[in-house]
Nucleic acid binder design. Sequence first.
DNA 1: GGCGTTGTCAATCAGATGATTACTTGACTG
DNA 2: CAGTCAAGTAATCATCTGATTGACAACGCC
Lengths: 209, 209
Amino acid sequence: MTSPRPRRSPAPQERQRNPERTRQRILEAAAVEFAEHGFAGARTRAIASRAGVNQQLVSYYFGGKEGLYRAMSEQWAQRRDELSPPGSSLPEQLRGYAMETLRNPDGVRMFAWSGLQWTGPDDDPDRDTRTQMLGSGVAHLRALQEAGRLPAELDPVCLEIILMAACMATTTLPHVIEGLVGADPRSPEFVEHYANQVALLARHIGLDD
Amino acid sequence: MTSPRPRRSPAPQERQRNPERTRQRILEAAAVEFAEHGFAGARTRAIASRAGVNQQLVSYYFGGKEGLYRAMSEQWAQRRDELSPPGSSLPEQLRGYAMETLRNPDGVRMFAWSGLQWTGPDDDPDRDTRTQMLGSGVAHLRALQEAGRLPAELDPVCLEIILMAACMATTTLPHVIEGLVGADPRSPEFVEHYANQVALLARHIGLDD
DNA sequence: GGCGTTGTCAATCAGATGATTACTTGACTG
DNA sequence: CAGTCAAGTAATCATCTGATTGACAACGCC
């Protein structure tokens, strides 16, 4: 069986047709715009323009703005799923999550938007994969608790939520940070410092392995 | 001196003029809509309709959508400033902040939106009052630290940010919560439980007085 | 009671926005 | 090489959105 797209000449011109690449470009542009402005604030024209394609292609490939948003959400969910959590110990892992603001600012922002835009369990395509992923984290905490490393009266679910909110703070509370530290809350310096502090606190709670 | 508004018949009809009441109604309706949909998602028509007044009055009193948003932000900043922090000990205070989701869901939501919509120190009318308020919290933490109740290597500013993010989680991460606990994340039962857990964690860190 | 001021409204506008239509271009097939 | 279908585009549309206009009715003042 030969390759599905022979493409005699590898890439003589960039003007060739390439539906998959076009699709992908739209998805990438959509991620940037949605991450920056949220669903209501994003503009289909801006997405098409950023992708360098005609606006109609958004309808052609995704059936409109809403379909594009859904498709992009699913792609990001999948991508996040593939991403193996960095770090070995739990504090190191949390440090990694807090650093995600630098590696993948759009993804974190998208996630933050989705929380405020959330209206209910339905129309949340990401729900199941996300829950499964977080559930494993909760299981980890619960195991730590049963091993006596964590106070019995602490609810592992709530702790997971607290830690998650903490890791996202550089994205969700930039105005607070700017006011308190007087510097750009997204600067690598501060994000790294903050991530270290999150890890430190986690250790102080007793989340070391 | 007599009353400024004599109003011969006390309230024969509600159709009487009352600019101040109208202004206030618009502001209240704006708070609800902006809290629900954010700035980009809120509709001037919906605000006017909710306030039960003509849409034009938004321009008449506030000079348009943006002016209304600013005015409402300032009003809420002021209202929050008046609101004395409940609770005596720091964990109790944090518990109170986490419970704010029930007492004042719109206020918390507005604050969460403002973080994602934030573009820079400018165009942030709330900045100074907010920073001042948070600064006092940081000072409190720093005092605790200097008294040896808190590890020296912890940055009080980062700790404050972490705690704040944790207190807002029932608003910022409803999708996560729904997935993990399978219940309405805004239900009084869960919010109270979560607030207790935040306070518990604070105690466990050593933030007791 | 007359009169200017001010609060309120209905009607409407210009621009933006997401979607649709009809057309062109390119690639594969027999 | 004709034919067919997929990929892409330009032009246009209907609707929505925030803002403006002009009328007018309630109020304060004399």
